[in-house]
Design a binder for these strands. Structure first.
Lengths: 284, 284
DNA sequence: TCGCTGTGATACCCGTGGAGTATCACGGGG
DNA sequence: CCCCGTGATACTCCACGGGTATCACAGCGA
């Protein structure tokens, strides 16, 4: 009735991506006729037309588009499930936590110190955390709202903090006790650095293109740029850096994030002790 | 390598639930030997021991427990994908929105009026919305934070409102211009009604057990109970009801909710116009 | 001690159905 | 008009999912 075997989903996604049965079959490493039949069978089973075969071309129907979206996330989730199972077997009672290199250093240390079980920490670049969660290489991630996209994940807020401007120590603004966003954005000689978007491209602008915090740190120390980061970034500042509080920047919340629908025992446990740790830290 | 056919997942979940191959095979409608072989094959493919067969009994390994959690949500998601595809085919360009009967009446009307496409509204009881989203019978739901559990979903906040106390008009408290939670909870002759928990049971207490707003409305009108609801509930009040603002109750946020990982074109469109509508309504 | 029962694993056979090859139907372009 | 390229169809084949019979082994009672 409504079984949707993963093989069928894989076939369908490939055809929907290629919009061409022969090429799709080629990519799948099978012949074209079995692929045609598999898709027909899938359509018959669902009672739905997924593709319009219009001589000289295949097009997705409305329903086909829906199934394409669904199937992609299903296949990703399936592969992630396999990987998580294998990880659970090879490293029992261990968790893998993904976080951006350099960010949240103190908070991360608190969490690791508080938790009894072994945690493998993976430091990754911009946006890699989401990918690692999605494909099952990590169980949980430490991210920052509103910087990181949380769609598709469940999360729990840990701690909220102010943002600060990180400036070259010699710069005139570095002497001020506090700044506003307008102060920072108005300075012509310190264009704010640009991070890559989700797709890896940079949006146009005057600032330098950067990929990680070490690049950023060096560029700031050289007096080429400034940055707006959360207050805990103070932990990795160089002597050539100065942090100045920003009065009107939106606050940043550190969040614990995990794939929705896969809150395993170990993850639930970790989230629980993490919340307890943070609460008690805030109370003190 | 890491394919995980849905048939295998179905088999594994059944065995993991029964912890007994013969009974599981029975439930699945197949014989026991093929089931044993299927599980062995799954274990070999993953390179992971999922079950400890310990003479007189089967037990889940650590990895098995992980896969059980994953497989359950995968199978649910698979069935949901099938259903959503079928709905997309039978009612193209239509969306199904699930909401609690009676709640958010005005907001719902705004959203429906603002959106050009056809929306099927399904009014359901406590907790049914989450189930309908999860099993693919609905595309999007209108819920209320912090009342409804949002785990496993993506959401977007629409509007925040105060809570009010709904009282029988004849009651002394109904004459007061405003109330506190302590006022309401302190009254012996108006025990607050109890809603069912996630599992359908009621936690013990003095108030009557209710399932929907019509029951609640009648019980309040009879003077048997009072309720604390969001301010927009005023739209369905009877003449025998009086709403009194609560000064210290937590605010309630109406949220648009959809299954994470399945933001189809239609859902995205609806969410976008909904946000625009609400923003513009708030500005006015 | 010896069955007896109930467990999952093994051996073996069968039929379905997934996959391959060859070919068709048909529209478009030289 | 013929040929190329498309997906669909017709068949053949065999791998694998499934069934039956049986085994190996632990617990348990007489």
């Amino acid at each position: 009735m409504d079984t949707l075997e993963t093989r069928e989903l894989r076939y369908f996604v490939t055809v929907a991506e290629e919009l061409h049965f022969s090429r799709a079959a080629d990519r799948l490493g099978i012949a074209q006729p079995p692929l045609s039949r598999a898709i027909q069978q899938l359509e018959r089973r669902l009672g739905v037309t997924l593709l319009d075969r219009d001589r000289r071309g295949v097009a997705l129907t409305e329903a086909g588009q829906v199934l394409l979206d669904e199937a992609r996330t299903l296949l990703d989730a399936t592969a992630a499930a396999a990987r998580r199972t294998q990880r659970a077997a090879s490293a029992p009672n261990r968790l893998t936590l993904a976080t951006k290199a350099g960010a949240n250093h103190e908070l991360l240390r608190e969490l690791l110190d508080a938790h009894p079980a072994e945690i493998d920490v993976v430091l990754c670049g911009m946006g890699d955390q989401a990918r690692m969660l999605r494909d099952g290489r990590a169980d949980v991630a430490l991210m920052q709202r509103p910087f990181d996209a949380l769609t598709g994940f469940d999360s729990e807020d840990l701690r909220t903090e102010q943002q600060v401007a990180i400036l070259p120590s010699g710069h005139p603004l570095a002497a001020r006790p506090s700044l506003t966003m307008a102060d920072i954005l108005g300075v012509r000689d310190l264009p704010i650095a640009r991070w890559p978007e989700q797709d890896g491209t940079y949006r146009p602008g005057p600032g330098p293109e950067i990929r990680d915090l070490s690049q950023l740190a060096q560029l700031i120390a050289l007096g080429h740029t400034a940055a707006v980061l959360c207050a805990s970034s103070r932990s990795w500042l160089w002597s050539a850096h100065t942090a100045v509080p920003l009065t009107d920047a939106p606050h940043v919340t550190s969040v614990l994030v995990w794939p929705s629908g896969s809150r395993s025992r170990a993850v639930a446990e970790f989230v629980r002790t993490a919340l307890a740790t943070v609460r008690e830290g805030d109370a003190a």
